[in-house]
């Protein structure tokens, strides 16, 4: 049961769920940008809504709504809370 909820990609999180960032597998400029937005290991993230086409998805991070594409979100590992 536990392995289902830990260390899973952010892109698999359902709308409304809360999770906590474990690690980032991103590289280069995007990694910098994500870190600069405060998405560091330990930060709580809530999945808020999908765009009409289902992608990108908006996440609430530190009181800010940030949209990420599925490819990018799948590179961020989280634990469900």
């Amino acid at each position: 049961m536990n392995n289902v909820l830990t260390n899973i990609p952010l892109s698999t999180i359902g709308i409304g769920s809360m999770c906590q960032i474990v690690s980032l597998n991103l590289q280069g400029l995007l990694r910098r940008r994500i870190l600069d937005l405060g998405m560091v290991p330990g930060t709580p993230v809530q999945c808020i809504r999908k765009s009409p086409a289902g992608d990108p998805v908006a996440y609430m991070v530190r009181d800010t709504l940030i949209a990420l594409r599925r490819e990018d979100a799948s590179q961020i590992n989280v634990n469900l809370m």
């Binding site: 995007l30 940008r33 990108p56 709504l65 940030i66 949209a67 990420l68 594409r69 490819e71 990018d72």
Partner: peptide
């Protein structure tokens, strides 16, 4: 396509 980080301000 590269990445997108888009802020949706209040």
């Amino acid at each position: 396509a590269s990445s997108l980080v888009l802020e949706l301000p209040p």
